[in-house]
Amino acid sequence: MVLDLGCGSGVPAARSLAAASCRVTGIDISEVQIRRARERVPQAEFIHADATAVSCGAASFDAVVSFFALIHIPVAEQPPLLRKIA
């Protein structure tokens, strides 16, 4: 199970992971992007949520990817988020 944190429209990361037979969950703060991701990558699960506030259980994912999302998160909020991911 792979988490795509800040998945946007699901392309290219979630789509590529799903094509490689990974179970993918994407999280994004934008409702519009989540809607697009669900249309573009129907085999994945997408959740509308704030990456800094969402709660997933410990060891919920085998891997986490995040392309370009961290730069949109205030610097002070990044270390706590990264600790939560770890």
Rank of each mutant, 00 (worst) to 15 (best):
M1D: 12
V2E: 05
L3N: 00
D4A: 06
D4Y: 00
L5H: 00
G6S: 13
G6Y: 13
G6V: 15
C7Q: 06
V11I: 12
P12M: 11
P12L: 07
A13C: 14
A13R: 04
A14M: 05
R15V: 06
S16N: 08
S16L: 15
L17P: 03
L17S: 00
A18Q: 05
A18Y: 05
A18I: 06
A19V: 09
A20Q: 04
A20P: 03
A20E: 11
S21T: 10
S21C: 14
C22M: 12
C22R: 06
C22H: 12
R23F: 14
V24K: 03
V24N: 02
V24E: 00
T25W: 04
G26Y: 02
I27N: 00
D28Q: 10
D28R: 10
D28S: 09
I29C: 10
S30M: 07
S30Q: 01
S30V: 08
E31M: 10
E31G: 15
Q33N: 10
I34R: 00
I34D: 00
R35K: 15
R35H: 14
R36A: 12
R36I: 13
R36F: 15
A37P: 01
A37F: 06
R38K: 10
R38T: 06
R38C: 12
R38I: 08
E39A: 13
E39H: 12
E39T: 12
R40L: 15
R40Y: 12
V41S: 02
V41I: 04
A44W: 07
E45G: 06
F46W: 02
I47K: 03
I47E: 01
I47R: 04
A51S: 03
T52Q: 12
T52Y: 09
S55Q: 13
S55G: 05
C56K: 00
G57Q: 13
A58C: 13
A58Y: 13
A58M: 11
A59N: 04
A59H: 10
S60C: 02
S60T: 04
F61I: 05
A63Y: 11
V65G: 04
S66W: 01
S66G: 01
S66P: 03
F67Y: 09
F68W: 13
A69K: 07
H72W: 10
I73F: 10
P74T: 04
A76I: 09
E77D: 14
Q78C: 15
P80A: 03
P80F: 02
L81R: 06
L81P: 03
L82I: 11
R83K: 07
R83F: 10
K84S: 11
I85Y: 05
I85A: 07
A86H: 02
A86C: 11
